[in-house]
């Protein structure tokens, strides 16, 4: 790639190739932070500056009210993930960061699906819902709202199955995660 200040003309293809490398490996980061204003902005800003796209993000309280936990998932893209975790550690309000290993981690997400369901299709939607251990939380003459929890893959699968019935809307929380066993995440 061309160096700044030199004359070399860059092709758009080159630029795009450099910007779009995705390794496809998903990371779940669990970040324990001080419960202070602006913390989320600092973290999100850091990812943006390093060229990471955050896929999902969930923030909530922990057992200690002084701290919050941020769970985010992202693609370990162009830059090695450890550079971004080191940068995160430098944020004064960040206490702990774990790049969670999938096999040692329980990850769950909650999703709400609003699906078209009139007379004919309703039974079928309810059947799919049952298989996924979803809950119908709202019913009208022409639609249902289904609540599903599970791993991100399970929710993707549910989405695929109900889409043909007419998926009106979907809302997902993004995954939250905790490590297996007695040890702290």
């Amino acid at each position: 790639m061309g160096e700044p200040g030199t004359k070399e003309i860059l092709s758009l293809d080159e630029l795009e190739a450099a910007g779009n490398l995705r390794t496809g490996r998903k990371h779940i980061l669990s970040i324990l932070v001080e419960n202070k204003p602006g913390v989320l902005t600092r973290i999100a800003g850091l990812f943006a500056r390093r060229g990471f796209n955050i896929d999902t993000l969930a923030v909530g309280p922990t057992d200690d009210e002084a701290f919050s936990r941020i769970t985010l998932t992202l693609d370990g893209a162009v830059h090695p993930i450890d550079q971004v975790t080191k940068q995160l550690h430098k944020l004064v309000n960040v206490l702990k960061i774990r790049d969670l290993e999938p096999q040692e981690t329980l990850a769950r997400e909650l999703a709400l699906f609003k699906v078209s369901a009139d007379g004919v299709s309703r039974a079928e939607v309810m059947q799919v819902c049952e298989i996924f251990r979803g809950k119908i939380v709202d019913v009208t003459k022409r639609s249902v709202v289904v609540e599903v929890t599970g791993t991100c893959d399970k929710i993707d699968a549910f989405e695929q199955l109900v889409r043909p019935f007419g998926l009106i809307e979907m809302a997902r929380t993004g995954e939250i995660a905790i490590s297996r066993g007695r040890g702290e995440t």
Partner: peptide, 10 residues
């Protein structure tokens, strides 16, 4: 100033 400080306090 967020990206260019070591830390900041509002």
């Amino acid at each position: 100033t967020m990206p260019i400080v070591k830390h900041s306090f509002l």
